[in-house]
Every structure is written in C-alpha cells, then in structure tokens.
Design a protein around this nucleic acid. Structure first.
Length: 96
DNA sequence: ACTATGACAGACG
DNA sequence: TCGTCTGCCATAG
C-alpha cells in the first residue's frame, strides 16, 4: 500500500454526502484498489476525522465491532436501519 | 517461506 | 433471506 492510495481512499470517503452511504467495495472500485478488505484496513488506520460511518458492507450491515456507534451516527443523519441493516437501494451513494 | 488474521464480497444451497 | 464457503490481499509473527 502506498500513500497515494490512502489519500484517494480518504477523498472518496470524505466525498460521501451526509445522509448517504457507500460500501467498502464501492470505495475500492472507485479508487482502483484490488480488494475491498484494503479499504477497511485504511479506515482502521486513518479513519479518524473522516465520515467513516457512511461506509458499510455490501449487505448493508456495518462491521460488528462498530455496529452500535455507526448506526447511531447514521440515524443522526437520517439514515434509518432495519434490524441493524441499512437499505442500500435507498441510501447508497452512486457518485455525482 | 508459511500461517493466521481481518472495518470484505460474491456464489450457492 | 440467511448461513456457509471460498477468494481476496496486505500485515504480523
């Protein structure tokens, strides 16, 4: 991993509008990373100061250890979760 | 060099 | 729709 990619991932995440969400895979594809796992790794490192809570799994469920807080933050922006799962068809951000 | 470990995703039954 | 299995790829030990 190089700084170049970290930087683009941060931009991509920062670009997600409030009230919308994206999946790890969406971000990976958008910045050209080969695996969605890498996005999670990057957010684990410098996710601080970014709207990381707008990034979910492809299933609409957040990562286990973050579930509670992440869903709270999303709810505060109007993103409602059903049974701990967000409706991607409705909130997914497809870019500008 | 090898194995285990994840903020993951897609295929399958 | 859900649980499981397999592929994924950088890191750590």
């Amino acid at each position: 991993m190089n700084e170049e990619e970290h930087e683009r991932v941060r931009e991509a995440v920062a670009a997600i509008p409030a009230g919308r969400v994206a999946t790890y895979g969406d971000i990976a594809g958008r910045v050209g990373l080969p695996s969605a796992r890498l996005v999670g790794r990057i957010l684990r490192e410098d996710g601080v100061d970014l709207p990381w809570h707008r990034v979910l799994r492809a299933t609409g469920k957040p990562a286990e250890h973050l579930a509670t807080e992440q869903l709270t933050l999303l709810a505060a922006e109007g993103v409602i979760a059903r049974d701990g799962r967000v409706d991607l068809r409705r909130y997914r951000w497809e870019g500008p």
